[in-house]
Design a protein around this nucleic acid. Structure first.
Lengths: 221, 221
DNA sequence: ACCTGAACACCGTTCAAGT
DNA sequence: ACCTGAACACCGTTCAAGT
């Protein structure tokens, strides 16, 4: 009857929509988020969402941006004593932790910062810190990009998870070295972690070499 | 009338479906591929596809695998004189070229090799070549994974393409270092190329360092 | 201003029916 | 064996209508 008293305050808000959508993405994945399903979860009808977001994509962008917002950037602050290499390392670890905590958002994040404020903040901060550390702007741009490549690539294409857990899928005649590949699913996290750490170390070692060959230039003599 | 003579041979084949689907993906992106649209393109009705593939995902996997099949792996052949570092470099460049030629397939490829034969062949070949070059199996697994991370990450999250081409999107007060970010869209390919090359060099330089510290171990003295 | 139901133009997939 | 039309249970989004 009068259960549904006409509310003075709106039933929905952008915050509430993003919160509920995030929970749904974490629990059941991106495909579980349909406008009708999300609306039902919020106790409203589907089209209501369009009073708060232009379309479904904007909702998912907001969900992804909430993840970017959780990335620690304190290592890039001017008053932080960490050198660029350590800062870059700690940033990569923090970024990856945020992504693996919300793996279903990675495909959305991998599309780039677009108009997402937190995503832009990350890009801006990394770029600024690298320039401040002495990298030329073009190189600083490259570093921001390649770190993103590696971090999102590792979170998205999780190598071990990419093999199906079924020995019959891999005929040793076709793939002579993959005999144990089906076992990877068992220790997917270790492989992922190991590959990430090996790759990150290699990346930073390699950048340090490039940084050395670069040092004389800024002084101009 | 009798235009549509009853064919002795089937109208469809897996090859024809994959070819048409690939063309559609390249021309209009993943979203353009619906079973009805693809079937129309092939001159049949939607459900016909299910006589040749179990579901739509299998069709997209086949489309993606056709891209993996185009990756050059000759640098890993036992009779090829290239050392592991050069081989890895040339492989990365070849892989990336295959992906940028078919950018819309990257999200599918990024899910890992799964059951795709060509994708598995790539993983198997890289792993085998690294072991043959002297890397311990665990490290060889990591190298295969981290190269994939970086290559697919660079093809997918194409950094420059990730910024919208609209100066008003970036308030300099919020993003003090991003003043020229909206310009990136103009030279997206250069930034992508540069970041990829910088990152690849760093990665290989760093792996070479790890390879050196590793050399004494296999000899056991 | 914000929410609703109805409607439009789609989806992926199943299935009985045809040849 | 292979293709069809009809059907099921969905989609994202628009829009006139309500308060």
């Amino acid at each position: 009857m009068c259960r549904m008293a006409r509310p003075r305050k709106p039933l929905l808000s952008r915050e509430r929509i993003v919160e509920t959508a995030s929970a749904l993405v974490d629990a059941e994945g991106l495909d579980a988020v349909s406008t009708r399903r999300l609306a039902a979860e919020l106790g409203v009808s589907g089209p209501s969402l369009y009073n708060h977001f232009r379309n479904k994509d904007e909702i998912l962008d907001a969900v992804a941006d909430a993840v970017s917002a959780r990335v620690d950037l304190s290592m890039f602050r001017e008053d932080d004593p960490r050198d660029w290499r350590t800062a870059l390392h700690d940033y990569a670890v923090s970024y990856r932790a945020a992504l693996t905590a919300h793996p279903h958002t990675v495909p959305v994040l991998a599309r780039g910062p677009r108009r997402r404020p937190a995503g832009l903040k990350v890009a801006d901060t990394v770029f600024g810190a690298m320039v401040r550390a002495g990298w030329p702007p073009a190189q600083a741009t490259h570093i921001g990009a390649l770190m993103r490549y590696f971090i999102t690539g590792s979170a998205l294409g999780s190598f071990a998870r990419g093999f199906v857990d079924d020995a019959t899928a891999y005929d040793p005649a076709d793939y002579p070295h993959l005999g144990q590949a089906h076992l990877l699913a068992d220790r997917q996290e270790q492989v992922d972690e190991g590959a990430f750490e090996t790759g990150l170390r290699a990346l930073l070692d390699g950048l340090a070499i490039q940084y050395e060959t670069l040092r004389p230039a800024p002084n101009r003599r």
